[in-house]
């Protein structure tokens, strides 16, 4: 079966981010999107620990422990950047000022519910960070994930079985098999990887998908 590579997925997400957008990229797979943002668009990256106008990782030796991203990795500030405290940073999310966030996920439901913070396993130490605020706050919530678990189960589900992060919040799902839009009539396939049919995609997903 053909699959989109991680870089192809990231480039596909980047294509859907418009010029002038304020964007938060989640930890993990979504951070790859930064490498694919079109050069002819001015896109401002937000990191919830207090920076708008975040730039790429610094050159080796130029790291500054006071200049990090939400994953606590060293970053840089671009001309036009601004720093702010945590209440302002989350006002940017919760107040609906961010245009878009890109998040990883364990599961997404056909209704757009997101599960990405906790497996619910009894021995797991729960940690939520900014996941719940981000999922609710951005105008568009894009999820980027593998379509299937390592065991071959669909991560797109009728109802999330993992604890949810937020309800009815996901706009689009970008996987290694397809790009899906969450609509009031259910999921709609925007793109499908070459060689995979819509019925086959729906069968693998275990949920109805409209063309």
């Amino acid at each position: 079966m053909n699959r989109y590579t991680r870089d192809q997925m990231a480039a596909r997400v980047a294509r859907d981010i418009r010029d002038g957008a304020y964007v938060n990229l989640g930890i993990g797979l979504p951070t790859l999107v930064a490498n694919h943002l079109p050069k002819d668009r001015e896109i401002i990256l937000h990191t919830e620990n207090g920076l708008l106008g975040m730039g790429p990782a610094p050159a080796p030796g130029a790291e500054d422990p006071d200049l990090i991203n939400a994953g606590k990795q060293p970053v840089t500030e671009l001309p036009g950047a601004s720093f702010f405290h945590h209440a302002d940073s989350f006002a940017m999310m919760r107040g609906g000022h961010l245009d878009c966030c890109v998040l990883g996920a364990f599961q997404v439901s056909v209704g757009g519910d997101l599960a990405n913070w906790h497996t619910g396993a009894p021995e797991a130490i729960p940690a939520v960070g900014g996941a719940m605020d981000l999922a609710l706050g951005a105008k568009s919530v894009y999820v980027m994930m593998e379509h299937l678990t390592k065991g071959g189960e669909s991560k797109i589900v009728t109802q999330c079985t993992y604890p949810v992060t937020a309800l009815h919040c996901v706009s689009r799902i970008y996987t290694d098999l397809a790009v899906l839009e969450v609509t009031s009539q259910g999921l709609r396939a925007v793109d499908i990887v070459d060689g995979l049919s819509l019925p086959e995609l729906a069968r693998l997903s275990g949920v109805p998908i409209n063309g």
Binding site: E48, H85, H86, A87, S89, F90, M93, R94, P126, A127, V128, G129, G130, A131, M132, D133, L136, G137, A166
Partner: peptide, 25 residues
Amino acid sequence: LVPQGNLAERIRAAGAGIGAFYTPT
């Protein structure tokens, strides 16, 4: 365990003399 934005706003509310607040998070 408190979502990060709720943590920040609960701290802000204390400092600003707010009795409680409704948050979607």
